[in-house]
Design a protein around this nucleic acid. Structure first.
Length: 278
DNA sequence: CGGGGTTCCTGGCCGC
DNA sequence: TGCGGCCAGGAACCCC
């Protein structure tokens, strides 16, 4: 599943290659989740940023006409979404069953969005107008925001009494943490995923752990377990560093106790009952 | 407004 | 071998 490190890897690869390019032509799958992709023909890519797991491309009209202003193309990859840039439009299979949208650029390259399970989404909105995307609208701070310290993180976590891991996955206390990196960070911080409140000290440990596992994930160009690919079709290598996610029933790498795995609030959750005891 | 439950999807896997 | 059934999983959506 693409989480912050996967989306950031794609962003870094695509940003310099999209900047300044104008969309000549586009098409999208019939679903309303993807049709907005075709709303920005003849717009130029100005910038490519990221908030949490959302990729945000700033675009402006190629020819400024009255009533046209800058827009944002917002892409969420869902579970199985892939964004790839192809140098040869003729080589792109426009009838591929998983192709959900494509954009032909003025340099002949084609940006494609494939998504097997159709959990991804594409929006085109005026800059900052995120009401149609509640999670983005209420998104917590970026994990590497210099204004985010343990006191602020503690305050944001304290707004909900749901299980700590469920709280993290809501994207409200902090942006970009999904199931994989949540399990990894909680293990690193030695915190039980089922607790409902935590003090300043554990908030600090958790924040540092989240920053560490995300930074490692970015360094490794993401975690490729099945579907995730980089913008050039390559795989990440962070799957080889995972300590917790997907390791239920195997030994804890810290204490040799057997990792337990349960479904917590609908999400598979793996943790060490010994060193992440309540 | 927070929280709980449901839905969207389809490939992969399990069991008979 | 073939096939029905089941499941993962982020976020929107609905309702209380």
């Amino acid at each position: 599943m693409p989480e912050l490190p996967e989306v950031e890897t794609i962003r870094r690869d695509l940003a310099p290659r999209l900047q300044g390019r104008t969309i000549r032509q586009s098409d999208a799958h019939w679903s309303a989740k993807f049709t907005p992709a075709t709303a920005i023909d003849h717009y130029r890519f100005v910038d490519l940023t990221r908030r949490g797991k959302f990729l945000i491309a700033s675009v402006e009209p190629e020819l400024a006409r009255s009533g046209d202003g800058p827009m944002e193309l917002v892409v969420h990859l869902g579970m199985t979404g892939r964004l790839q840039l192809h140098s040869d439009h003729a080589g792109v299979d426009l009838d591929h069953p998983h192709l959900r949208a494509w954009w032909l650029l003025d340099d002949g390259h084609t940006l494609t969005f494939h998504d097997i399970r159709r959990f991804g989404r594409i929006h085109v909105v005026p800059p900052g107008q995120y009401q149609a995307m509640p999670t983005l609208h209420h998104l917590g701070p970026e994990p590497f925001d210099p204004n985010l310290d343990s006191r602020l993180f503690h305050r944001l976590l304290s707004r909900s009494r749901r299980h700590l891991k469920t709280n993290l996955l809501s994207q409200r206390p902090i942006a970009g943490v999904g199931n994989i990196y949540a399990d990894e960070a909680l293990w690193m911080a030695k915190i039980n995923p089922k607790i409902r409140r935590l003090g300043l000290e554990r908030s600090e440990r958790l924040l540092v752990a989240i920053q560490e596992v995300l930074a490692l994930g970015i360094d490794n160009r993401g975690t490729t377990l099945r579907d995730y690919r980089t913008a050039d079709g390559g795989t990440g290598s962070n799957q080889f560093t995972l300590t917790t996610y997907g390791r239920g029933g195997q030994v804890c790498l810290r204490c040799n106790y057997l990792l337990d795995s349960v479904v917590l609030d609908g999400r598979t959750t793996t943790w060490c009952p010994s060193c992440q005891a309540r």
